[in-house]
Amino acid sequence: MADFNRRLPVYLLIDCSGSMRGERIEAVKQGIRSLVAELRSDPQALETAYLSVITFSSTAKQVEKLTELMLFEEPEFVTEGATMFGRALQLLIDCINTEVRKSTETQKGDWKPLVFILTDGSPSDIPDFKRCAEILKNMPIANIVACAAGADAKTEYLKMITDNVLMMNSLSAGDMAKFFAWVSSSIKMTSNKVDLNKGIVIPPADSNGFQFVE
């Protein structure tokens, strides 16, 4: 049987600046491990969701190319330096342009991607950031969810990228687990359900203990 599956590309943009060092990045790693395990155990997510990780610090790097869940391997997270958030957005744009498949006569095109961003600071490269935020607005993306974690995270920049900005007060392992559990249910819901009007369904965040910023 030919493979007629559409893929659901999921991009995780993870802040790896110096301030994320230690417990924080460990909590992120654990979160991604549970996310992958959780998605693998949902047949429809396992079938459709493809995962990529982009990290940003003094530079931006796609540490895991868009990969099917069973082949996903935990990337290395090197925490150092500044928060080149703009470069990460530029890389995201490039990745979406090259990795997300369009429909052809013989191949089903991918679903529009989901993007989850986690940062504990604000961009060091504000002009780049603003330029890329503008480009992103016109990209074929189903949804971008940005999470501002910790006291120093600036939601005003995240608001330039998306209306879906989450606030998390701490970066404790428990909060991070909740965040990734929520990301997992968003992905599961997108791969299983269709809200035929909006095209995408996002679960409410309040039951998970954090809130969207108005």
């Binding site: 007629f4 095109g109 679903w111």
Partner: peptide, 19 residues
């Protein structure tokens, strides 16, 4: 297998609309 998932395509549309 799924009874409606075959090789027909409408590549001029985006994935969501095509589906």
């Amino acid at each position: 297998r799924h009874p409606l998932e075959g090789k027909m395509r409408f590549p001029q549309f985006e994935a969501e609309e095509e589906d």
